[in-house]
């Protein structure tokens, strides 16, 4: 019964997560409102647009009950601009969409896949967290809703290549301490890079474990004694080598 999978989400699980993203559809048939477990779905009345979760949109699309409106970032113009940005800035990923205003202290903050980053009024200039999965799924199930599906597919492939190269070249900055900033990284990219990135960090940590333990003990001792002298730090380094 216990889960046989290693820690971290598998690609199908990431796709499952991505299917919770809201997308905009133009219904072709009426559908009464529904009380679902994850909240109510408002009635669909053609030709009015509605935002519904991707899994439902795909279900309706396959039965030809609705058309999906691809998000504004998923067209040739936006993707070309983002791709240019990715190529120009070889160090970092293109910035993620802007965050909604800070919620009050007592509410649960929302995060992907529950931010409306892929509806028809999402920002056109940034790739959201689930960009790759969402793009692939829409191109597969609803390519007739795109203006130039093949061109979009090509651009997505290009973006993926550029960003994977960044993820790989980022390996050089990895060390035992961890603490690597990866703003703008996508869900599928986290899934692909996780085993390698965390493996390298954990492996390096185990190599330097004894030195770290010494350091920890000394830091704690200093904290207890209340003095902050680090004068003997360099000497210790020498002893270690």
């Amino acid at each position: 019964m216990a889960l046989p999978l290693p820690p971290g989400l598998t690609p199908p699980e990431i796709a499952f997560l991505c299917e919770m993203e809201l997308v905009t559809v133009i219904p072709r048939q009426r559908l009464e409102g529904l009380e679902l477990l994850g909240g109510p779905i408002r009635p669909l009345n053609p030709p009015y647009r509605a935002n519904i979760p991707l899994w439902l949109a795909l279900l309706l699309k396959r039965q030809r009950r609705a058309n999906i409106l691809p998000p504004p970032w998923l067209n040739t113009h936006s993707l070309t601009a983002i791709l240019d940005h990715e190529i120009e800035h070889s160090e970092t990923f293109s910035p993620p969409p802007r965050l909604p205003p800070q919620p009050s202290n007592h509410t649960l903050p929302t995060s992907p896949p529950f931010l409306p980053n892929s509806t028809a009024d999402a920002a056109p200039d940034a790739l959201p967290y689930h960009w790759l999965e969402l793009g692939e799924m829409l191109l597969e199930a609803a390519s007739d809703d795109f203006e130039e599906p093949d061109h979009v597919r090509k651009l997505l492939r290009g973006l993926r290549e550029v960003r994977m190269a960044k993820l790989r070249s980022g390996v050089e900055v990895l060390d035992a301490g961890g603490g690597v900033k990866m703003n703008g990284v996508g869900g599928m990219e986290v899934g692909e890079g996780r085993a390698f990135v965390t493996g390298v960090i954990d492996g390096l940590r185990k190599i330097t474990a004894s030195r770290e333990q010494q350091r920890k003990d000394r830091d704690r001792e200093e904290l207890e004694n209340g003095f902050s002298g680090t004068a003997d730090y360099d000497d210790d380094e020498m002893d270690m080598q």
Binding site: G177, G179, V190, I201, E212
Partner: peptide, 22 residues
Amino acid sequence: VEGTDRRFEMKRGDVWVVRWSA
């Protein structure tokens, strides 16, 4: 990050790879 020199600021929306214990 205890035991290392690593110190950084984490802001809203940031994604980091970091030790669970930290």
